[in-house]
Design a binder for these strands. Structure first.
Lengths: 199, 199
DNA sequence: TTTGAAATTTGAACAGTGTTCATTATTTTT
DNA sequence: AAAAATAATGAACACTGTTCAAATTTCAAA
């Protein structure tokens, strides 16, 4: 009887959906066992029948948000010219997504991982996500001899560090202050990292 | 009668010292009103006679930790040759300090600021701190015409973003995994940012 | 359909948080 | 020494997470 498994998966889905809603609207601070359960339509105690704890649940949202971000970025960069132009567009769209949903940035980069975390190793999934989004363009640039793969590796890392840090400071420390200043800083940083690539 | 003010300042100091101890050893997660008060030798309720709340208290530690970090960096970079060499040493020592005290990194970069925060604007104090540490060397490099002040401004920002992001990923997401890999990543990033400066 | 066992859902209970405030204790002034 | 001002405190309340025995529901067998 697979009905059992199906129903169980559905209920898990209700909890995950509730958690995602809270994360996107109120942010991580409002994620509580009782909060999630109420939105899911169950008692808080029921959550423990399906998940180890709320932290477990929260990290199960990462995949869904990455897919959402992937769609966000892909649709917004579809018409950009391949190569450097599109790479820049992807980076900016990635930033935009987290500025729009700071709670998701919190989850991805700030929430402490539980000691023995999920089966799909969450940390590499998160840190590798930007690379995955940019993968195609880097391959394109390397194939067209615009950059060597060694230089590309360095630039990938520099962009990940720099843009994560920029988001961290903007979201948590209001630096730069105001979205226009943030965008300017982002563009300046990306310019400086990609300047040797400009054909 | 200024005895009153002196004694009051002393008691505030006990609370601040207790908070600093907890932050350095157990980290932000262990900072609680009752925890701090016990270490300070007072009841938890007394804390509210001297501070708005524990968050207030926690951000009052920032200045002290910055001074400590300043000493840490200064002593470790005293004998470096002025200019690019010393700049690199400062950046690495700054990273080292936060790797050694991840709880302080948490406080500086991850803890949410209370809505109406301190009189000394905490956010700019934190985001401007690395620049302050490097100020002398950038001035030196600019004076010796190694870089223009415009380029220097860009590089300062890029280093702040990149190194903050690197720390964030290393401390929270084990990426890179292991201190040697972290150091390698840090050096590679710094190299790429300073490469045009090398004389 | 009724019964009974297995599975699921649940709220009570406990130990932790932060915060307020009336009561107690101390210090200072008279 | 008595009175007034000041400071310290614990009880109380509303939240957290978590466990577990009890209540409820499900469902196959009679």
């Amino acid at each position: 009887m697979k009905n059992k498994a199906l129903q169980e998966q559905r209920i898990r889905g209700y909890f995950i959906e509730a958690t995602k809603e809270i994360l996107k609207s109120e942010g991580l601070k409002s994620v509580s066992v009782r909060n999630i359960a109420e939105k899911a339509g169950y008692s808080f105690a029921t959550l423990y029948n399906y998940f180890k704890d709320a932290k477990d649940l929260v990290f199960l949202c990462v995949q869904d948000f990455q897919e959402e971000c992937n769609v966000y970025v892909t649709t917004r960069t579809a018409k950009a010219a391949r190569g450097e132009k599109k790479l820049r567009a992807i980076l900016l769209a990635w930033l935009e997504y987290f500025v729009q949903y700071p709670g998701i940035f919190e989850l991805f980069f700030m929430e402490k991982l539980s000691d023995l975390n999920k089966q799909p190793d969450t940390a590499p999934m998160i840190t590798g996500f930007l690379d995955k989004l940019c993968e195609g363009e880097w391959k394109y640039l390397i194939a067209h001899k615009t950059v060597s793969s060694a230089v590309a590796a360095n630039k990938k890392a520099a962009l990940l560090y720099g843009l994560s840090g920029l988001l961290l400071l903007y979201i948590n420390r209001q630096t730069p202050s105001g979205y226009p200043a943030f965008l300017k800083a982002a563009n300046t940083f990306i310019d400086s990292q990609l300047k040797e690539i400009t054909t």
